[in-house]
Amino acid sequence: MARKKTITRDQILTAAYEVVANDGFSKFTARNIANQMKCSTQPIYLEFANMDDLKQEVVKVIFKHLSEDIFTREVTTNRLIDFGLNYIDFATKEKKLYRALYLEDSGNGSMMQETSFRWFKKIAIEHSDYANLSDEQIQSIYIGFWIVATGMASLMSAGILEFVQEDVIKALEETLAIVLEREEIIDIKVKTSK
């Protein structure tokens, strides 16, 4: 009679998520994930072809969490401001996961930047103020906005600076206004993972 599985795919994904959220991708090993579940590594390799397969699945879980629970919260009447505000809030509240996704050299930084740009662009083209802008203009707005949002997120995540929400909103609104007024396109490209 075959042994019944006692550790499920979802349990492995949850443990892997916890490892990344607590220690970053540098500690993303079968042994650390198994330790999180208090078991051997065998269930991991029974459910996933290899660690890259597991990593891809964990990244999907993280993306789902970000897109459904974090970046879509409505705080103001401007969804672009909300996006920046939610990104900064995420960096402040989930410091290690933020660093693992956006700052560590784990191969995910470019993918996260691409994903963030796609989210930003989707929000922008749905907003009447930005609907008629070219792709180059939207990318230019994103770069200017993202530099400020990332600077604030990184400084707040590191505990170097503290901002009250009203000041963050004002800074993001002013950044959008300044970048929109520019005649010249900011010609910095989002680095892709390809």
Rank of each mutant, 00 (worst) to 15 (best):
E114T: 14
I70P: 03
G144Q: 06
M1Q: 11
T150L: 09
R99Y: 14
A2K: 15
E18K: 15
R79W: 03
M111I: 15
I160D: 08
I147M: 13
I141W: 02
I123P: 01
N108S: 06
L155Q: 13
K5V: 12
M1K: 15
W146I: 06
H127C: 10
S110R: 15
Y142G: 00
K55C: 04
E47G: 00
I125Q: 10
T8A: 09
E181Q: 15
N108E: 14
E162D: 15
V148H: 04
S26L: 05
G144A: 09
G144N: 08
K27V: 00
V168K: 05
W146H: 15
K121G: 01
L180S: 08
M152S: 00
Q137I: 03
H127G: 02
A2T: 14
T192Y: 13
K27G: 02
G151V: 03
W119G: 08
A177N: 14
K4P: 04
I169C: 04
K122V: 04
D167M: 08
D89T: 14
I143Y: 02
S40R: 09
T115D: 13
K170T: 07
T175P: 03
K64W: 09
A91G: 09
D69F: 09
S140T: 07
E114A: 13
V59R: 03
L161A: 14
R79G: 00
R99P: 00
I185C: 12
N35C: 04
T115L: 14
G159Q: 07
K191S: 14
S40F: 06
E18T: 12
L133V: 04
E166H: 07
L46D: 06
K121T: 06
R9M: 10
D135Y: 12
R79D: 04
Q139C: 05
K93F: 11
I169Q: 01
A15W: 05
S128H: 11
L46W: 08
E104S: 08
T6E: 13
T29Q: 03
W146R: 15
V58T: 09
S193Y: 10
D10F: 13
A124P: 00
T175I: 06
V58Y: 00
